[in-house]
């Protein structure tokens, strides 16, 4: 019990004294996962909308694949991104392995199916005739897509939350493609694993508290936006 209490106290001390290393790790986590979420939003909402609005042979198989991808194990993603970026791998010439970019790529791969799956579901949940109504109002195809995305914005925000939550808290892929290099690719989750392994529970708890705080703040912010979006 003392161990946890001491850990929490130490965590707050590290936080309030703005420990340089802890803040650096936190900032990198936010940057990497934020960028990965942004990339997954562009890809996920774009592709998800196309899949939701079109019909083609094999669509059901594709949707099932996307849904399976929503639960992609991070270590599997880590493994394949590592192979791709390995010195002798197909993208080895880019020399991205063990860089923050590698983590962004891996996390984007994890988050994109999550955002895509939620986008497809959100679009399919819109009233069936809404598309006809928008076109009947004189919309072009582009206007139609933007208006549908706007209509589905509240469930899509849930997609943002799920995507960000999924990547900021994953550890497997980040450690495999980032390598947990101090001051370079060390993020909150990989640092927590390392400090726990070393028995530095206070630092590990501090990092976990920051991680939880990020998750809470992002979700709180999006919940606020969702509520403001629905006029009374």
């Amino acid at each position: 019990m003392d161990l946890i209490l001491d850990g929490i106290l130490q965590a707050f001390r590290l936080l309030f004294t703005l420990d340089r290393e802890v803040l650096g790790i936190a900032w990198l986590s936010l940057k990497v996962s934020g960028l990965a979420t942004l990339i997954s939003l562009v890809l996920g909402i774009g592709l998800g909308t196309v899949i939701a609005l079109t019909s083609f042979p094999g669509r059901k198989v594709l949707v099932s694949l996307v849904n399976t991808g929503m639960g992609l194990p991070p270590v599997v993603v880590g493994l394949f991104v590592s192979i791709l970026l390995w010195r002798n791998g197909p993208l080895g010439f880019l020399e991205l392995l063990y860089t923050p970019s590698a983590i962004i790529i891996a996390q984007s791969v994890i988050a994109t199916p999550i955002v895509m799956g939620i986008t497809i579901a959100a679009m399919q949940n819109l009233p069936a005739n809404l598309r006809l109504q928008i076109l009947a109002l004189g919309a072009t195809r582009t206007q139609l897509v933007f208006m549908l995305i706007k209509e589905a914005r509240l469930p899509l925000m849930a997609g943002v939350m799920a995507g960000f939550g999924g990547v900021i808290s994953e550890v497997g892929a980040s450690i495999m493609v980032g390598g947990n290099v101090k001051g370079y690719t060390r993020v909150l989750t990989t640092a927590t694993v390392m400090e726990t392994g070393r028995g530095n529970f206070d630092i590990a708890i501090a990092l976990s508290v920051i991680l939880l705080l990020f998750c809470f703040l992002i979700n709180y912010l999006l919940t606020l936006i969702q509520h403001r979006e629905r006029p009374r």
Binding site: P127, N129, L130, L132, Q133, L135, A136, L137, G138, T140, M147, K150, E151, R153, L154, R230, P231
Partner: peptide, 20 residues
């Protein structure tokens, strides 16, 4: 498109947008 912009259609459901 030009033709659709000169006419209007009211469907069976109101199909209003999620706004004011």
């Amino acid at each position: 498109l030009a033709f659709r912009r000169r006419i209007a259609m009211v469907l069976q459901e109101p199909l209003l947008f999620d706004t004011t």
